[in-house]
Design a protein around this nucleic acid. Structure first.
Lengths: 136, 136
DNA sequence: CAGGAGACATACAATTAGTACAATAATACA
DNA sequence: TGTATTATTGTACTAATTGTATGTCTCCTG
């Protein structure tokens, strides 16, 4: 469930984890009250240091997504509903968007190309109520 | 692999490095995802200052050939430059974009919100020549 | 003889890893 | 049943590895 990390890209592992878990919580894959893998288990699975996992958990704890307690474990707190927390919500979108644009820029695209394609895909989203399915 | 620099000629070392690495990537000697020597390792090998290596890496990063990140290292990116393979290039952008939109959708955003923010960030990109830096 | 570009020296910052510690839960045993 | 022991779990501190930022020196060029 968590094993799709990019070790070569420009996004730190802990940051990738934060995004991934946020999404899993937001989409209901991880339900409130559910326990996440322990830092050690997750660390050995992903072959990173346990502190890297702990860092992601701590960030999510501070953001109110998870609740971690020494000796007990890490649990899902609240589903991140669109209604709650507007400023952090927009900040999240901004982060996602910036990192998407940066990636596009780095692999050689220009704003017009991106804009053109986005217009198309956004229109499809408006029509269908959901964005076009991506392969991943 | 990198130890054929010309210290006598009048082509700057960083420039020689940029050309050399570009060629190695283009010819497939350096494969996507592969990590390059750290700036320090390369610097001691070639007996130049680490900033000279860093400069070459930075240029290649800006050109989308490499991806460097503080604390992690420098890696070869996927070659998606306009020169090679136009259809796969756009397909790559489409993939990136779809997966970005899907994420936004899953976290609870609607097309208008995404569109609004994108207009803003794309405008900034056009103005500055590069997209706004993301924190991550 | 300025001006600037290239290279260098040095200090800084970010990410990840190694190790020991502390809090909680589970178990063993009298 | 009560308490001691062990296991489990997150935390704190430190170190190692990596790229970045800033200032200085030198050399070439006009």
């Amino acid at each position: 469930m968590f094993d799709e990390l990019d070790f070569q890209g420009h996004i730190p592992i802990y940051s990738q984890l934060v995004d991934r878990i946020k999404r899993l919580v937001a989409t209901g894959v991880l339900k409130p009250g559910e326990q996440l893998p322990t830092v050690r288990k997750m660390a050995t699975e992903l072959r990173v240091n346990l502190n890297t996992i702990a860092r992601a958990y701590r960030i999510l704890d501070e953001e109110g997504v998870l609740s971690t307690q020494q000796g007990r474990g890490t649990y899902v707190l609240q589903p991140m509903l669109p209604e709650k927390g507007l400023p952090p919500r927009m900040a999240a979108l901004e982060g996602m968007t910036k990192s998407f644009l940066e990636r596009a820029y780095q692999v050689g695209f220009n704003p017009d190309e991106v804009s053109l394609l986005l217009d198309e895909l956004l229109a499809a989203w408006r029509e269908d109520g959901m964005p076009p399915k991506s392969k991943s």
